[in-house]
Design a protein around this nucleic acid. Structure first.
Lengths: 256, 256
DNA sequence: CGCGATTTTGAAAAGACTCAATCTTTGTGG
DNA sequence: CCACAAAGATTGAGTCTTTTCAAAATCGCG
């Protein structure tokens, strides 16, 4: 099952682009307006890594940071470990998205990233990327921009976990996944959740039982149909409406 | 009250260092091992900004990003706005700490930062810092490292908000503040909370009433004494013990 | 000293969690 | 291909924590 070592050929950038229509490598290099030469240079540092089976770790918390990755197919979860072994999932990674950004600059990973299913990724050795970024103006800035995005996402998650009801949390996540699948060219109203209910709950700060119950409520209310991990939105407006009320419309928070 | 415009003199780096024993400007430049020249260069781009009164905004969400700041005295809070006006405090900033890092790279602020009391800050225009970082090797990397720290902190907060009880959340925050005050040379066991109960609760994802009740419980249990915003630890070990149990010791989370 | 804002307190209700049992799905071996 | 075991998901009932609403107390400031 595990493929040979370095037998895997270098993968070309346009292959990756083809593989995922909104590949973040594009995100990484496109806004910089790379010339032909630069694109080729970037091409050369991208490697296809071994496919991961479900449960395989892409990287572990504390490990020295060597590369960032982009998901070609499959999906991953990243989690941080609390002192007590309990862990908290901080992100799911779908095809076309970048992994490992939180480790940039610290020199080592803050989180452990693991495959939720059979997953293939591209590896972008960071030292090479860094080197390249010294040559290509704007690439360094691009890296900062992407890290910044990471911070922004974390804040959004915090908003959700700290202030929303179980129903809202799940609705928000489902709509978020919908968008991300949609961006990738897949259906926005019908898709397969790659993660378990346990993971779903963990990410949202809920017990798995609660997650399950919320699914049932959504089902009962006709908001969506659920068959195992298969999801279909039946009443998108209602779901979005759920998202929009912060559970405390009457309460005005004044400060300052 | 509002001081003259550019009348304020440039402030020298060593003044800042003196002002706060663990000033993050040190954090920013010290590990890079700056030479005398470089230090002076950095000195020259640091400006003392107007003092802020309670409630004054240092920067607002959405504003173009122009500078990072370091707190000389007083304190600040940063919060993100949800779509519905509800906001979430994502950080408190004490003397010696840097503000505005989450905006690096995105070009605009993600959060609004506001003074909790009369506060004075130093302004570090980012364009100049960026410019400087092209000349001083390592400074760029240092910026990345600091952003990375920001991500790490966010993840910690997420852990706390998502997985801990009200008691644990407050204990963790109090101990964290204690450390930060201590690092600054103040007492670790007795200090003044600069923020309101409302803010405290908001940061921890709790209703203000709950925050208040937890204080009472701590008081009753003899863990600390509370007089308004004045705090004193009476049983540090007990507080730390609270911190260490994730509320679910029997439950082993296995995955993979 | 008085007023407004913040904080505290109480009681009731809601929401989420735990525990335990059942049902389903998945994967394995016969 | 089917049976079985193991893991994951669902459901139910009861409990506990936290929130909400309302009111009293306290604090801070002019």
């Amino acid at each position: 099952m595990t493929p040979g070592d370095d037998a895997y050929p270098r993968i070309r950038l346009y292959d990756i682009r083809k593989a995922c229509s909104t590949c973040s490598l594009r995100e990484l290099c496109l806004p910089v307006a790379l010339g032909r030469e630069d694109t080729e240079a970037l091409d050369h540092i991208v490697e296809r890594d071994h496919p991961l089976r479900k449960g395989d770790k892409l990287c572990r918390s504390g490990q020295p940071f060597a590369a960032i990755y982009t998901v070609l197919s499959g999906s991953l979860k990243s989690s941080t470990q609390g002192e007590n072994g309990e862990d908290q999932i901080i992100a799911f990674h779908l095809p076309g998205e970048l992994v490992g950004l939180d480790a940039i600059g610290a020199g080592r990973h803050h989180s452990t990233t693991e495959a939720l299913e059979t997953t293939s990724v591209c590896k972008i050795p960071f030292s090479r990327l860094e080197e390249l970024s010294r040559q290509i103006p704007g690439l360094q800035h691009q890296l900062l921009r992407i890290m910044s995005k990471e911070i922004f996402d974390d804040h959004e998650l915090l908003q959700v976990v700290a202030r929303r009801s179980a129903e809202q949390r799940l609705a928000i996540l489902l709509l978020n996944l919908s968008q991300r699948f949609g961006r990738r060219g897949l259906s926005r109203t019908r898709f397969r959740l790659p993660m378990s209910r346990h993971d779903l709950g963990n990410y949202l700060g809920l017990a798995p039982e609660t997650t399950s119950r919320v699914f049932r409520r959504f089902l009962t209310q006709g908001l969506l149909s659920v068959t195992g991990k298969e999801i279909e939105f039946l009443d998108l407006p209602a779901l979005q409406a759920l998202t929009e009320s912060p559970s405390a419309p009457p309460r005005s928070s004044k400060q300052g």
